[in-house]
């Protein structure tokens, strides 16, 4: 009797406070339908473009070969890279392959080509649960990202956590605040009228509280990305997501 009671209480608290809910659940049915239909989802234009770039530049090493196909890989990123001695997100990992395996210049963050390739690679993990490693060398990035998430900043003196932990579900200027998970990105935002990276989404949130946005691809944004991925662990990757 008592055990059943405790189990029930535990379950109830998990369901309310710790339930991880995708931003998808906060969209209108029209926007959800847009994401669900591969032939109508505008993000698929970038995925397709990425697919043809991949066939030209990457497929030699990354089909069934020894380096593996890349299915499910994006769910493990950001990850610490021993050779590069830094935390790489998918964009960084792609540029790393360009540098060391293709002897090519890195692609600019938010360039059409990098968005297309990262959307393609992340789309190969669509349906996979986010599962990042925060131990070992990744730990200090994780700590840095968590600190950034809880630090108050900007003219409005707000932290990410105040909106996305404490007030999700509430309305803000016609927008319903979600839990702020990264699983839709690179994603198509209607407001951008284009595909964009997770770091561009960070910049929009920082600008929204009148804080100075950090550089795309910067170490602190990569660290923040690691913290968000850990916070969203178990959530299914939706790339290309569609958001307002």
């Amino acid at each position: 009797m008592r055990a059943a009671c405790i189990a029930f209480l535990l379950w109830a608290s998990l369901a309310s406070a710790d339930e991880v809910i995708s931003g998808y659940e906060f969209l209108t049915p029209e926007t959800q339908a847009l994401q669900d239909d591969d032939f109508a989802n505008p993000g698929m234009l970038w995925v397709e473009e990425g697919g043809s770039l991949f066939a030209q530049q990457c497929a030699d090493c990354h089909t069934q070969g020894s380096n593996g196909n890349l299915e499910g890989v994006a769910a493990r990123y950001p990850a610490f890279d021993q050779d590069a001695q830094t935390l790489l997100n998918i964009e960084g990992r792609i540029n790393r392959c360009r540098e060391i395996h293709l002897q090519a210049e890195p692609l600019a963050y938010e360039s059409k080509a990098l968005l297309a390739l990262s959307a393609y690679v992340a789309n190969l993990s669509k349906g996979h649960a986010i599962d990042v490693d925060i131990d070992g060398a990744a730990q200090r990035y994780f700590t840095e990202g968590r600190d950034y998430f809880f630090r108050r900043k900007g003219q409005f003196n707000l932290a990410c956590s105040q909106c996305h932990d404490d007030h999700w579900g509430r309305m803000l200027r016609g927008d319903r605040i979600s839990q702020g998970h990264p699983n839709a990105f690179p994603g198509y935002r209607l407001e951008w009228q284009a595909m964009g990276s997770l770091h561009r989404r960070f910049q929009d949130c920082d600008a929204g509280i009148r804080a100075q946005p950090l550089a795309l691809g910067s170490r602190r944004y990569r660290s923040l990305e690691l913290y968000l991925a850990w916070r969203a662990r178990g959530l299914i990757i939706e790339v290309p997501g569609v958001r307002r």
Binding site: F39, A40, P42, L45, W46, Q193
Partner: peptide
């Protein structure tokens, strides 16, 4: 028939 093209318009 569904068609889509990438363009900023």
């Amino acid at each position: 028939v569904k068609v889509m093209i990438q363009h900023d318009m």
